[in-house]
Every structure is written in structure tokens, then in C-alpha cells.
Design a protein around this nucleic acid. Structure first.
Lengths: 189, 189
DNA sequence: GGTAAACTTGACAGTGGGGTCAACATCAGA
DNA sequence: TCTGATGTTGACCCCACTGTCAAGTTTACC
């Protein structure tokens, strides 16, 4: 791969089929789905997959950032709609948790399980930055306990993501996690 | 295995070496350590390990409940020493988290990663019962928010255990988790 | 329609674990 | 000391997955 700038028609079709299959399989099963399965779903051999993408990370990067970006964008809009910094932070946290639960791939992305997927990592970095900003805003507004730090927010989301990945998690992990943020938000003195 | 009630001297020695090795390796690396490694540490082949114990679960059960029981017992004593139900609950949570962090094997046990290790599961059940009782006591005492349930406590410990297992966990997960219980304890109206 | 370049295939090797078994070794007791 | 019951060995098979490559197929262009 790489030298010829235009792919042969069949090759282009295969690449497209692979991307479609990858999107589906990744979204359904998470970013650690067997590449085998993606190749099979695309009706192509694993060799072809490697020929086109060379690594799991590259395949992820070719497919997931777009989806993740769109989802994050939508969440960003919902967050903006809130009137107060406290409201925005809460909307952000609940929205992120929702995204993580709905979509194993996004969850894996946010947990940074594949740091070599650079494009995807970029999307996550942005969302982390947004989260940090929301924490700062809420602090400035005086509606977030000052000992709830930016890192605490990221840890909270990490916990939620990790719990969401694990089928053996007791279901009330949600209570525990959300209590942590809501209590920090209601302690505005 | 099984019919002869007295093992040959060398066989007994091997079983003992295996138990010692298993204790060490399990405590150091968690209950999912390769059995290979345990056999090697005992100076014995994997066949011998299987000959004596037949499965990972059986080996775990032969070795870990004793340690786990002792640790839990010590924690129980420390908890008893507290004057109030709130104090006992807090001591229990912090103590459990400490145990989970200090000892991957105990952590795996409490997360019930090997439910077929029945003896071990028994020990965990007991500690769960103690936790539930402490929640009920604190509710009765009026020092624990009534929407913090027994299941919430178990979920909290599950979260802590899971975070502790994962080297990629952001370190402030501890803040997040402990805030959840401390806020529920300080909301006694 | 023939040919070279581009592409695909699938069998294969590698990894890292679980578990088995026929052949070999050792022990205990007569 | 000899023998058979008891134990042990480690090569071997299994699984699921990653990644490679020589041989075969298809396309694009003359």
C-alpha cells in the first residue's frame, strides 16, 4: 500500500466494505472486537484488511473519530443549552455516561484503550478539555465544591466507563457515581 | 488422585510446595496468575499441579480462603472498635478499599472473579453480609442518607476493586468513590 | 486480448494461556 | 530386592487472536 495514489476499483470497494464493517462491528462490540470478524463481515480476508490498514489502530482511526466527533458535538450542543455552569456540568456528566453506556466503541475510545489511534485520541482530548472547562466554570460560579477537581471529573468518567464495560458490575454503580457529582454540586455554600 | 486416603510422602511434599507457591504467586499477581508460573515456582510440572488440584478454582480454594478470612477478621475487629454505626460503616469501607488495593488476590476474590471457588465465595458473602448490616445500622442510627442502599455499598466496593485492578486508572478515582460514601454519611439531617 | 502491476487469498507461524496423557520414575511393603 | 501402585513429567493438543507471505487472481492500460 501507499505508493500508488489511486486505488484500483476493486481495492477501493474493499476498503469501503472494510470501513463499513469495521464501523458496525466496533460500535456493536467495542474497539477490541476481533479483526477477523470485521474481515469476515466485509466479505474479505484478513490479509486484505492488513493490506489496507496495517493495524487495528489505523482501522479505528479511519472509522471511529467521525462517529465519536458527531456524538461529542451533539452532547456539546445539549450542554450549551443549560443556563448555569452547574447545569452544564451536570448535563455533561450525565450525557457522557449515557454515551459510554450506549456505545462500547465510544467507551473504549474515552477510556483511551488504543492511544495509538491518534485521530480518535484527539477527539477524546477535546472532550476532556471541555469537561475541565466546565469544572472551572462551576467553581467560578460557586456551585461546585472546591475539592471536586478537574481530575476528579475525569476519574469519575473513567469509573463509569469501566463499570459500563463489565457485565458483572452491580447495577447500582450508577447511583454511586452520580452521587459523587451531585453531592459536590449541591454543596455550594 | 482421590481414592487413596494417604498420599505418598513425595506427593504430600509436592502438594505442600504447590500450596506455598500458589499462595505467594496469587497474592503477588492476583488470582488470574498463570498456573504455569505456580508450578514452576513450586519446582514441579503443570501436570502435577493438575493432578493435585484439577483446576484453578480448587487451588484457589485450597489456599486463599484462609488468608482472606484472616484479613476480614482483622477488619471486622477494627470496625467493632468504632463507637457509632456511622464510624463503623466508614471504617469498613475504608478498610475494605485498603485491603483491595494491598492485595490483588483478595481484590479478585471480593470481585468474585472465580465464583466456582466456593470456600472463597463463602468468605466474601460473609463480608458482604457484614457490610449490609452496617448500612442498616447506620440507617437506624439516622446517620446515613436513606437513599444510600445496601446495594450501593456493594457497588461502591466493586468500583473500588475494579479501579484498583487497572493500572491505567486515574489516581483520583479514590476521591470520587470516597466522596460518595462520605457525602451520604454527612447528610444525616 | 495480452501483460504487468495491483490486489487478494488462506494457510501458516507466533503468542499466551488452559488442560491431557502415555511413558517414565519413585516409593512402600512383602 | 523386587514389584506394582502411586506420582510425575513435558511434549502435545486446544483455543482465540494477531500478523505475514508466496502463490494465485483481477484490473487497467496498451
Amino acid at each position: 500500500m501507499s505508493e500508488p495514489r489511486t486505488l484500483r476499483r476493486d481495492a477501493r470497494a474493499n476498503a469501503a466494505k472494510l470501513q463499513t464493517a469495521a464501523r458496525e462491528v466496533f460500535l456493536a462490540k467495542g474497539l477490541d472486537a476481533p479483526l477477523d470478524e470485521i474481515a469476515r463481515a466485509a466479505g474479505v480476508s484478513t490479509g486484505t484488511l492488513y493490506n489496507h490498514f496495517g493495524s487495528r489502530e489505523a482501522l479505528i482511526d479511519a472509522v471511529i473519530p467521525e462517529v465519536a466527533g458527531a456524538r461529542m458535538h451533539a452532547l456539546g450542543a445539549a450542554v450549551e443549552a443549560e443556563a448555569t455552569a452547574a447545569g452544564r456540568l451536570q448535563a455533561f456528566v450525565l450525557g457522557m455516561i449515557q454515551l459510554q453506556q450506549d456505545d462500547p466503541a465510544l467507551n473504549d475510545a474515552l477510556l483511551r484503550r488504543y492511544p495509538d489511534a491518534v485521530a480518535l485520541t484527539g477527539v477524546c482530548d477535546q472532550s476532556a478539555l471541555l469537561g475541565r472547562q466546565l469544572v472551572r466554570d462551576a467553581h467560578a460560579e460557586g456551585t461546585l465544591a472546591s475539592d471536586f477537581t478537574e481530575d476528579d471529573l475525569l476519574a469519575l468518567l473513567w469509573l463509569a466507563g469501566t463499570a459500563g464495560r463489565d457485565r458483572t458490575a452491580p447495577s447500582s454503580w450508577r447511583h454511586v457515581v452520580t452521587r459523587s457529582i451531585t453531592s459536590a454540586l449541591s454543596q455550594h455554600r
